[in-house]
Nucleic acid binder design. Structure first.
Lengths: 253, 253
DNA sequence: AAAGTTATGGTCTTGGCGACCAGAACTTTG
DNA sequence: CAAAGTTCTGGTCGCCAAGACCATAACTTT
């Protein structure tokens, strides 16, 4: 069918006898906004799916790796250079997922601290932070199979939260315990005891490092919280475990 | 060159102006053999890398999904129809990974019970079970970037073992506790207490179902073990947790 | 000054998990 | 046939992480 970029095929080898695909990378950019999980979407300006919201992405170039392509797209979309966490989590190639041609996309997950101001500064036609729940429950229809991609990304970050130290990527360089706890509570949809959470995080050194400073209390007042910054150990696994409580023995789990 | 947010094409779109890729699926087939983890490899009959060992795989067709392509390849290579576990775990698209042309491959992991007899029956030029450690320590060189793919597959199965019930896929339809425990011990490289292991697995019903029968003892004698078959709950998560013991407080973990 | 709100430390209990032991059941060997 | 060896399987003990809950400190606004 379509010709491939023929670079030095062996004698007798004919590239056109193999199906040609376009390869794209899509980057699901997650962030915390207003206490709940949000995803950065862009509005498509052209066919197909013109006018619909979609996950930012673009074509992979032959001379770059998939990871490089994802980071390039992230930089072009948000201006962020070294994202805290850029992880590949899936490839999607169902026939017909793009009505024009055969496209296989490799999906990446990126976690940002506060994408709001950054997204506004880009020249993207239209970009917005959207509540993840609006996407997952179908309130907002996405182009292509992007709803499924977002769902898989959220599922992935739920697992990563326990296995690695993604949590600190959601908050700023300095943060309070309440902010960090809010990340876990929002993504897992659970409530954690503030005192126990604090103990788990501070227990062994290396997870968080207390700066001497204290945060300004919120509008409601209260004791000002200590400000921390992330330690090095977050790259190896997180201190908070998902509360598997609903087991209750017998059958569940 | 290509627009970023615009992954679409206007009317009058010409596919040849976007880079074309070949898309393949590679299936890492893992099995237990002689008490250690083995991977099924095939010897390449053509350029490039002619004569070298490689992970079985092939081109994705435009009219099938990636999962279907993986299952088709698995069937063509081993004759196995519904594999116990076929999971996508990564996409690889480094430039130059295939000297001929631009190829992006999507890698799958499949776990089989005993691939030995099956592999022998296929018409593949040359197929063999190889010790995973031989591949990982470089004793056996693989074509393309397949060593990295195998390494990632093994890492994945290590995690899956704890999260899901892959373990039963390695053993036969009926098995003894010792056989099941050997799977965990081989893949994790740890030793588990036989009594505690048994308790964890039998604790809540649903993980394993005792058949009345007993296995024949090995050459060394001993009490014959009860034979079990897998229950339904293995699809939701496994009963055995990785022994994070080396934490020892302070710093590690 | 009083009331409200948040942060943070203390204590108690529970349950899971690993270490270890002992007996049961069956083998092979003398 | 008896003895020794091997494996399976149930029991017990102790430790520690994790959750529930309370109390107090520290700061706000009214």
């Amino acid at each position: 069918m379509t010709p491939t970029t023929d670079r030095g095929a062996p004698a007798g080898y004919n590239p056109s006898q193999f199906p040609a695909f376009a390869v794209t990378v899509d980057v699901v950019i997650l962030t915390m906004s207003g206490g709940s999980l949000h995803v950065l979407l862009v509005r498509r300006g052209e066919d197909p799916f013109e006018g619909m919201w979609a996950v930012p992405g673009g074509f992979k170039r032959p001379d770059e790796t998939l990871d490089e392509a994802a980071k390039r797209e992230l930089r072009e979309e948000t201006g962020v250079d070294a994202a805290s966490l850029v992880t590949q989590f899936g490839a999607y190639g169902d026939p017909g997922r793009d009505p024009r041609m055969n496209v296989v996309t490799v999906a990446y997950l990126a976690v940002l601290r506060d994408v709001g101001a950054i997204a506004a500064g880009t020249d993207a036609a239209d970009a917005a932070l959207t509540s993840v729940s609006d996407v997952l429950n179908g309130k907002l229809q996405l182009a292509f199979d992007h709803q499924r991609i977002v769902r898989d990304a959220v599922e992935r970050v739920r697992l990563e939260l326990e296995a690695s130290g993604v949590a600190t990527a959601f908050v700023g360089t300095t943060f309070t315990m309440a902010e960090l706890r809010a990340v876990y509570e929002a993504i897992w949809g659970v409530q954690l005891d503030a005192a126990n959470f604090r103990r788990s995080v501070v227990a062994d050194d290396g997870w968080v490092i207390p700066t001497g400073r204290r945060a300004r209390p919120g509008a409601a007042g209260g004791k000002p919280a200590e400000l921390y910054r992330a330690g090095q150990l977050w790259k190896q696994g997180g201190p908070i475990r998902y509360p598997h409580k609903a087991e209750k023995r017998k059958g569940t789990r």
